[in-house]
């Protein structure tokens, strides 16, 4: 099947094609899912290199279960968020108190229009990442899934294996923690300019 036609298929259908040996489906699924998993792992871990390892491991698990994947039962991304979170938890157990690897984030190119704005966006994103690191694991996961990945609460409940009310509670406490961690930075990051 041509690449453009495959592009219209959802992840579920592509995974079935992958299991049937379609190499174009393998390429497209990797191009689609690897950045999503990597971003999620980075936000939970704050380390780009470790996020890369976790992405590779999570995708490897997806390819392994591909022949047994039952179409329509679960979203591929939801499944991956869950696997990613489990892998991140394993890493957290091994190392505590990690910091954001700012060097691993590509620098904005000079001379581009809106460089100042880009730098401000990056500074805010980095500040948020630092603040996320101060939260307990479950609160961080709930906040990231809700506000950065854009999942609905029932989906988050499914990913985290808890009830919707527990998700709401974790998200609320996480946001209060973030607000506290970021309170001193609002002035320096130009937050007041947006009001």
């Amino acid at each position: 099947m041509p690449f453009d036609d495959l592009d219209r298929l959802d992840d579920d259908a592509l995974l079935v094609l992958y299991a049937n040996g379609d190499p174009a489906a393998a390429r497209l699924l990797t191009a689609r899912l690897a950045p999503v998993v990597h971003a999620h792992a980075y936000r939970l871990l704050g380390d780009a290199a470790e996020a890369e390892d976790i992405t590779q491991e999570a995708l490897m698990r997806l390819w392994q279960i591909a022949p047994d994947w039952r179409q329509g039962e679960a979203k591929v991304t939801t499944w991956l968020y869950r696997v990613t979170a489990n892998l991140v938890t394993d890493r957290h157990r091994r190392r505590r108190g990690g910091t954001v690897d700012i060097d691993a984030i590509p620098e904005p190119e000079d001379g581009q229009p809106g460089v100042v704005e880009q730098m401000q966006v990056r500074a805010r994103a980095e500040a948020l990442q630092d603040a996320l690191e101060t939260l307990p694991d479950r609160q961080r996961q709930a906040v990231v899934l809700r506000h950065l990945e854009g999942l609905a609460n029932p989906d988050i409940a499914h990913v985290m294996g808890i009830g919707v009310e527990a998700v709401e509670s974790l998200t609320a406490r996480g946001k209060r923690g973030l607000a506290k961690a970021l309170s001193g930075l609002k002035e320096t990051l130009g937050y007041r300019d947006d009001d």
Binding site: P35, L128, H147, L148, L178
Partner: peptide
């Protein structure tokens, strides 16, 4: 909590996966 500006920045400044890794 005034957090949306930070969430918005984080969504726009998505960490990039290197071409080699991909």
């Amino acid at each position: 909590e005034g957090l949306e500006v930070f969430f918005d920045a984080a969504r726009r400044d998505r960490p990039r996966l290197s071409d080699d890794a991909l």
